[in-house]
Each structure stands twice: as structure tokens, then as C-alpha cells.
Computed example of a mutant assay.
Amino acid sequence: MPLMGFVQQIGTGALVTIQVAVLAYLLALLIGTLFALATLKRRLVVNIAWQTYASIFTGVPSLLVAFLFYYAGSGIISSVLSLAGLNVTIDISPFMAAVAALGMVYGAYLADLIRSAIQNVPPGQFEATKVLLIPRPAAWVLVILPQVLRLALPGMTNMWIVVLKDTALISLIGLKEIMAYAKLASGVTKEPFIYYLLASAFFLGMTALTYFVSQRIEQWTRRGYRPVAVKGPAHAL
């Protein structure tokens, strides 16, 4: 295959990498937000479910989770559906296993991050929404969550970069993403430097784009926010 043919394949693999990373991150964000909101109040059942989930998915490597989802996911889903009287067979593709594995693993980390951000929102903000009789859903969407985003954005940005880089491991379950095509091209042409350099350029470019976008989002979340500067000692001696 000519050189440009392999370059086109790497471009196709880059698109697959982006798709996996975006869907996995959105899944992780959904899981993390739900667990963060659910664990704000101490409920025994919720805390047991959270501790079990967090212990499993933070203690097992994401690649191993992907292997388990890929090779055992179909059987697990079929068994669960059979309990409801549904005899349905679902084939788990490498793409589905990759998204599920990365989403479940990093959802546990995002839950801690988002919960900490919510707890760091000044209590006066919650009290103000009650005094102004703002409906609870509107208060969360319009008042609390924008402040949570401002506080959690640096950690969320770093988590996105980690998810993006971890997609390189998913090629081991057969997903044809950028690293799989780079390995194939370097093996055929015996020129690994060129194709691995292209893959490195892709990840570096995505990282640079991430920081650029995160800075714009941070500027948006800081609109109207003026931190209080404390001059002099905080207390009198």
C-alpha cells in the first residue's frame, strides 16, 4: 500500500479515537454527575452502591475492564435480560466495550471531582436561591452548576486528556483506532518512526486544542465573578 494510503488509514483511526474518547467521556460525566448528586447526602444504600462501584472501577485497570466487557459483556447482558423474561442476544463490539470501559472507570474519578466542586460552592448560594424562591431545578441549572463547572473545570480538562490517551490501550481488544493503524503501517513499511510520529502529533494536537477550548470555557464561567482579595492579616493579633 502506498504511503498516502497508510496516512489515510491513520486519519480514519484518528476519527475513531476521537469518537471513542468523546462518547466515553460523556458517559463518565453522566455517571460521575449522578453519583456526585446522589452521594451529597448520606444514605446507606447509595453509599454502599457508590463504595462498591468506586472500589471495583478504580482498583481495576481500564484495559482489563475493556477485556471483561468485550469477552464477557454479551453473556452478562443476556443473563440480566433473561431474568426479565427477554431472550435477547447482544453482541459487544470492540467500540462498545471501549466506550463502556473508559466511561465506567473514569466516571468514578469524575464523581469525586464533581462532588468536591459542589461542596466548595459557598453555602450562601444555596440559601440565596431558597430566599428568592427559585425552583430547585432552575437553581441547580442556572446558579449552582455554572459555579461547579468553574471549580471543576481544571480537573475535568485533565480527566479528558487522560481518557483520550487511554484510548491507545483499546487497540488490544481489536479496535482499529489510530495506534492500531500506526502499528500496522510501521510493520508493513518498516518505518515506525514516521507513523508513530504522526500518532504523537495527533495526540499533541488534541491536547493543545483541549487547553485552548478549556481556556475559553474558563473565561465564560468567570463572567461576573470577582474573587475577593484579602489585604493584610486575616485576623488581628
Rank of each mutant, 00 (worst) to 15 (best):
Ala97Glu: 03
Tyr109Ala: 06
Ala111Cys: 12
Thr39Trp: 13
Ser55Met: 07
Leu164Lys: 09
Ile170Gln: 02
Val22His: 02
Pro137Val: 14
Phe69Tyr: 15
Asn158Phe: 12
Lys231Ser: 14
Gly85Tyr: 01
Gln51Leu: 13
Gly11Trp: 00
Tyr70Phe: 15
Arg115Glu: 07
Pro137Ser: 10
Tyr53Leu: 10
Met1Val: 10
Ala234Thr: 12
Asp112Gly: 08
Leu237Lys: 10
Ile77Val: 15
Ala117Cys: 09
Ala152Phe: 13
Gly11Asn: 01
Pro233Gln: 04
Ser74Ile: 06
Val141Asn: 15
Pro123Trp: 04
Met4Asn: 11
Gln9Arg: 13
Lys231Asp: 14
Leu34Asp: 09
Thr210His: 05
Asn87Cys: 04
Leu198Arg: 00
Leu184Trp: 08
Phe126Gly: 00
Arg42Leu: 13
Ser62Arg: 06
Ala108Phe: 09
Leu133Thr: 12
Leu197Trp: 09
Val88Ala: 03
Ile173Gly: 01
Pro137Cys: 09
Leu81Asp: 02
Pro227Ala: 13
Ser62Phe: 09
Pro137Gly: 10
Lys183Ser: 03
Leu34Asn: 07
Lys190Ala: 11
Ala54Asn: 08
Leu23Arg: 02
Thr189Arg: 01
Ala185His: 00
Tyr211Trp: 08
Trp50Ile: 07
Tyr225Met: 12
Gly5Leu: 11
Ile90Gln: 05
Ala185Thr: 05
Ala128Phe: 04
Leu83Trp: 10
Ala139Asn: 05
Phe67Arg: 09
Thr207Leu: 05
Gly11Asp: 00
Ser214Thr: 11
Leu204Val: 14
Ser214Phe: 05
Leu133Ala: 13
Ile76Arg: 06
Ile118Ser: 03
Tyr25Ser: 10
Gly107Ala: 05
Met179Gln: 07
Leu151Cys: 06
Val80Met: 14
Lys183Glu: 03
Ile217Phe: 10
Arg150Asn: 11
Ala234Trp: 12
Leu197Arg: 02
Ala24Arg: 06
Gly13Lys: 00
Gly174Pro: 04
Tyr195Lys: 01
Leu172Thr: 13
Ala234Gln: 11
Arg222His: 13
Thr52Lys: 10
Glu177Tyr: 02
Ser171Met: 14
Ser200Lys: 08
Leu142Ser: 15
Tyr71Ala: 08
Leu132Phe: 13
Thr167His: 02
Pro122Tyr: 03
Ser93His: 02
Ala38Met: 14
Glu218Cys: 04
Leu23Gly: 04
Pro154Val: 10
Arg115Ser: 08
Ile31Pro: 08
Ser171Gln: 12
Ser55Pro: 04
Leu149Trp: 15
Leu184Glu: 10
Tyr196Phe: 06
Ala66Asn: 07
Val213Lys: 04
Leu153Asn: 06
Pro61Cys: 12
Arg223Ile: 15
Tyr25Lys: 02
Leu81Ser: 00
Tyr196Glu: 01
Thr52Cys: 14
Ser82Val: 09
Pro135Tyr: 09
Ala66Lys: 06
His235Thr: 14
Lys41Asp: 13
Tyr109Trp: 07
Lys190Asn: 12
Gly232Lys: 07
Leu204Thr: 11
Ile114Pro: 03
Tyr53Glu: 09
Ala111Ile: 08
Asn87Gln: 12
Leu175Ala: 03
Leu23Cys: 09
Gly85Arg: 01
Leu113Ala: 03
Ile90Trp: 06
Leu172Ile: 13
Lys130Ile: 04
Leu29Phe: 03
Ala101Tyr: 03
Val148Met: 11
Gly155Ile: 10
Leu63Glu: 06
Ala111Asp: 07
